[in-house]
Design a protein around this nucleic acid. Structure first.
Lengths: 350, 350
DNA sequence: GTGAAAGCGCTAACAA
DNA sequence: TTGTTAGCGCTTTCAC
């Protein structure tokens, strides 16, 4: 009975105490410990104090995974993006984390590298990991790819891209109108030969941005010239190569719309190498506003996407879905915003 | 016995099948199912086939969390960085993920925002989440902050920064020599008034980079001028403000060393606003090489850190530590590399 | 108000 | 080779 009894009673080899240890130390049952941990409803003040002390003394920390197993409820959410290094996605991730943290949910982050096979592996892993739900920037536009995942009955929300016919919650940006705004801006400045650096055909955002570009041209009565369209790969080299090609045209464009942020970096390199001046020799607009855009010389005109909000909205949709699995699916479309800077317009000095 | 018996036997309300369901369907015990799932040792071909078929038919997927609970072994690792949006950290994260994925380990990523309190919350969460280990870019240089975490007996490796007297594995970059190389480079170009934008005093990398800067000056016999030292906050505005201040000096520097990538973005803005030319009016070197560095005009001279390797090394250290908790701690110091571009040197056109 | 006991999905002795 | 059983750490009826 001596409180000083030199009893080192730690369950198992690992030295982390369990409910059992706490119960023993406090002289109560594990049920009581559990009650105290979860708020102390229906427990006498007396025992609460006793248990709390034992908890402190043992430095007890309840295992969430054991709890989750018991209550059949996960507190993890999975995220799969195509490029974790792209500021577009990290900002989204930030929004997701901030929203989930409030609910005590942690994020398992994975990277598909735009590769359907990798994506599939990660999806499997996350399912096996018993996540509460998954937020996904799909690498494939083919909804069949995700058919069996959906059959799994797990909450899923797609962001940025939306595979056709996929019946899930989604958070998207109005790519068409964003691209149209960018193109119209160039047209309003008097440009008529406007190039575009597009992304891979199979990615919906590429298609939609091209669509916006084309519709702006059409509305302005400017004929569409296929030679001004260069397909990049959403990577830096892609932007570089396409821009080089555009500049080498017999009749090069006077302005270019780059439909993704990292391709813009490549495009800039090509422009600098050719010693062209922005915007006088060539004007440039980019889809995606990035932290470095304002630090360029001249600063970059860009279509800003509400990245952080995409993240918070997606997280919220997922939480709702988990709570209410049978609710009708929702599609949230956020607006982009054209931010005009020096890469298209020479600033007035009055 | 009819295979067509319309028995919908799914355990629990959630419709995901368990070992039990598979066992029942295959007409074997759960133990056999478990054996088949884990490789099929000591199971007859006959039953293996039977079980596998049941698994496919039910679309069974073993719960890793249940498994982990049973075998007392986690397959998650936690990562806490101070800014998940900083390319420096995303690249590290990439290295970590690529290394862990091979071992079937998934990453729980969290963001401390350079805030000790947030960091503490995340540490607690990760511990409760029963992670196998934690990779941490510490927000505090005070090792006391982490004392009780270490007492937890969990594997932990720190990256980028190293709190004094903290006995854990670490992966660091040689900040002093990196900063010295940058400064020496400027000196070799004939600069004598060299400014520096430092980070917060309490972050070790700030101190060390300042140290490298000072030692280079000293070696060159250039007196240290405190008015040329401006303390930023490792954020963009910080770099902007410090650069503005430096440029407004009676006798402004002819070159500046910015000791962190995002502050460099702010510095660039300030330089452009003042319509100064790089490198003729002011030369600029940055610690951290970033994807956009080569796309600037002129491209940015920078001290490149082996970010991806930091990640892989940290992951490897952690895996080793988990396997062998009592091994002596190791400190890995990686070299940085000065990449000379146009922001310090006008390229030759021969 | 409190405890005993069952069980979440899984694995690992131990028996057979 | 296969099944029975106990138990990982936790919560939650159900008795008392």
């Amino acid at each position: 009975m001596g409180a000083m009894a030199a009893k080192k009673r730690i369950s198992k080899n690992r030295n982390t105490p369990t409910v059992k240890d706490v119960a023993e130390k406090a002289g109560v049952s594990t049920a009581t410990v559990s009650r105290v941990v979860s708020g102390g409803e229906n427990v006498s003040q007396h025992l609460i104090a006793q248990v709390k002390q034992a908890i402190v003394e043992l430095n007890y920390r309840p295992s969430r995974v054991a709890r989750n197993l018991r209550v059949r409820k996960a507190n993890t959410v999975g995220l799969i993006v195509s490029d974790i290094q792209n500021p577009f996605f990290t900002s989204i991730m930030r929004g997701i984390q901030d929203t989930l943290q409030v609910e005590g949910i942690v994020l398992l982050a994975a990277n598909s590298d735009e590769d359907v096979e990798q994506e599939r592996i990660h999806l499997e892993t996350l399912l096996a990991e018993d996540v509460a739900g998954i937020i996904l920037a799909p690498a494939s536009s083919d909804s069949c790819t995700y058919a069996d995942i959906l059959a799994e009955g797990i909450g899923i929300v797609v962001i940025d891209r939306n595979p056709k016919n996929l019946k899930v919650d989604s958070v998207l940006v109005d790519n068409v109108s964003g691209a149209r705004a960018a193109t119209e801006h160039l047209i309003s400045l008097g440009h008529e030969r406007i190039g575009i650096i597009t992304g891979p055909k199979h990615i919906s955002t590429s298609q939609l941005r091209l669509e916006g570009y084309q519709s702006a041209l059409q509305d302005a009565g400017i004929p569409f010239d296929p030679s001004l369209v260069g397909m990049g790969n959403f990577r830096q080299e892609g932007g570089y190569q396409v821009m080089q090609a555009l500049c080498s045209l017999m009749n090069p464009p006077t302005a270019v719309f780059s439909s993704n942020n990292v391709m813009t970096l490549g495009a800039l390199q090509a422009i600098h190498e050719k010693c062209l001046r922005i915007p006088s020799d060539i004007a440039l607009v980019s889809f995606d506003d990035m932290p470095w855009a304002a630090s360029l010389h001249p600063p970059l005109t860009a279509v800003a996407q509400p990245t952080y909000e995409i993240g918070t909205a997606a997280a919220r949709l997922l939480l709702d879905r988990v709570k209410e699995p049978d609710r009708p699916t929702r599609k949230i479309i956020l607006e982009s915003q054209l931010i005009i800077r020096g890469s298209t317009v020479v600033p007035d000095y009055d």
